[in-house]
Each structure stands twice: as C-alpha cells, then as structure tokens.
Design a protein around this nucleic acid. Sequence first.
DNA 1: ATCAAAATGAGAATCTTTTTCATCTGAGTT
DNA 2: AACTCAGATGAAAAAGATTCTCATTTTGAT
Lengths: 137, 137
Amino acid sequence: MTSTDLKKAGLKATMPRLRVFQILEENHKRHMSAEDVYKALIDSGEDVGLATVYRVLTQFEAAGLIARHHFGDGHSVFELDHGGHHDHILCVKCGRVDEFIDETIEQRQREIARNAGYEMTDHALYIYGICNSCRNK
Amino acid sequence: MTSTDLKKAGLKATMPRLRVFQILEENHKRHMSAEDVYKALIDSGEDVGLATVYRVLTQFEAAGLIARHHFGDGHSVFELDHGGHHDHILCVKCGRVDEFIDETIEQRQREIARNAGYEMTDHALYIYGICNSCRNK
DNA sequence: ATCAAAATGAGAATCTTTTTCATCTGAGTT
DNA sequence: AACTCAGATGAAAAAGATTCTCATTTTGAT
C-alpha cells in the first residue's frame, strides 16, 4: 500500500489510512474487528480515534481493498482482499476460522440466483462446527 | 402452539410467550425483528416489554422453535422453524427475501467440513442480488 | 388458597457503530 | 517555502440493537 494506491481510490494519503492498512497487512492471517485494529494502532503508539478507524475501514471496503464479514457474533471483522473471494468455516468453541473455496458451490449459487430471477451481486457462506483440536479435548 | 408445547420446552406457559408465538404464526411469510414483534404486540393491545420479547425469542431459538438469521444489516430476524432448514436469497434494493434449499450445496458443505476436520453444527448461506422486479425499474 | 420459583416490565446499562463539529492536514498553487 | 481549502481527523455525543438489574407479578405444583 502506497500513497499512490490510496489516491487511485480517491483517498488522500493520510497517516491513519497508511497505518490501518499496515496493521491489516501485519495481521493478514487474522480477521480483525474495528476495535482490534484500533487497539493495535494505540499499542503501536499511534494517536488515532476509533471513529477514524471505522471510517477508514468502510472506505477501504468500498474501494475493494478489504472485505467485511459478519460471523454472527454481532460485529464486523475485516481482512485484506488478498486472493479474492472465499468462504469461511468457524469453530464455535474456540473461534478458529478457516477459509475455503468450492467451485461446485459457487456454480450452484449462480444457478439458484438465476432461477429465482435474481442478478447475483454477492454471497456469504458460513459453516459452523467444532474443529479437530476442540473435539479432542 | 399450546401451553403443553411450551412446557415440553421447559418454559412456563405465560401470556407473552403464547402471544409472541402467535405473532410469528400470523407473519409466517415474513422475517421479523424483535422490534417488529414488539410493535405487533403493542398494536394488538398487549402490554409487554421489549426486553421480554428479546428474552422470549432467544428462548424459542434455544428450544428449536424458531430460527434466527443475520441478514447483514445489523440486527437479527426470526422465523418459525416450519419445514426445517433452508437458505436465503435477498434483494439488496427492496429487501425482498426468498428461500431455497439445494441438496448439492448441503452435500458439499458436509464434505468441506469433514475435510477441514470440523464436525459441522450449522451453516448459513446468503445470496445477495437484485430481484426481477427491481431490475425492471 | 398458598408459596417458591420463574417470569415480567421498566429503565438503566452495554456494546458496536455513526454522526457532529471544531480543528488540523495533505497536496496542489503561488 | 508559504498559502489555501477541500478533505480528513479526534473527541464526544448520539444512535441503534440487545442485555442486564431489580422490584413486582404470575405460574404451577401443593
């Protein structure tokens, strides 16, 4: 992420924006909430407001730089939009999140949307379960 | 829904519980939020508190009488658990909701969970799109 | 009818997210 | 490097959804 990238998205290259992006890069394996990002920023000595974090995350989402997910526990989590679309499988015990992509399902979804008379714009699939290590406890 | 049904679920047969269930039955084609149910109750002349509606809906969900969904707009909606599991396709313009069930997808989900080492407990699939009538406007 | 346990209503509290607004900053322009 | 101003920011207030607290009421078994 460079100032140039931000300008392409119609956003000024400000310090909070650069830093929010850095935090997401450093944590690219996790799914972070706005609060998580905010805390990471504060811990790193940055002086940002929570409202700015929310604003920046929403702008990044609109610009297609990051993806927002609703895992069902009431708040949004974000991740860098590396590697395009994928779905999630979550452990209801420990909160672990794995990702997957299944072409059969993608295909069927498009057919279902078409049959129902919809022009599909997006979709979200969450599988909830108990992961291996939680099952062996 | 009878008093006996409630007792089977380990819940006392109280007036708010019976009435919440009735409201959901009367609106079985819609997906209602807690607020929707509350307003319907008030409009019907019932004297209930919003907190009670939330409590009762949560209890009904735990008892398997109703299903809770998160359509991504920040609040939960509920529907009677008639006819078992199904997934949803939503219009992002008008909010219309259609339901579907696809055995191919159900099947693949079970396989994906197994391959990822998860014991699947639940899943949610939302397709977002623009419905026929919104497209022709 | 009696009584303990469970349930309720009202309002306070909590949590996440958005809005308001006065101040500050980025990035073209002199 | 100084000038300018639209856009961006932080702090605090506000909003929206949901949960909690607690005094009071109701249920269901006796």
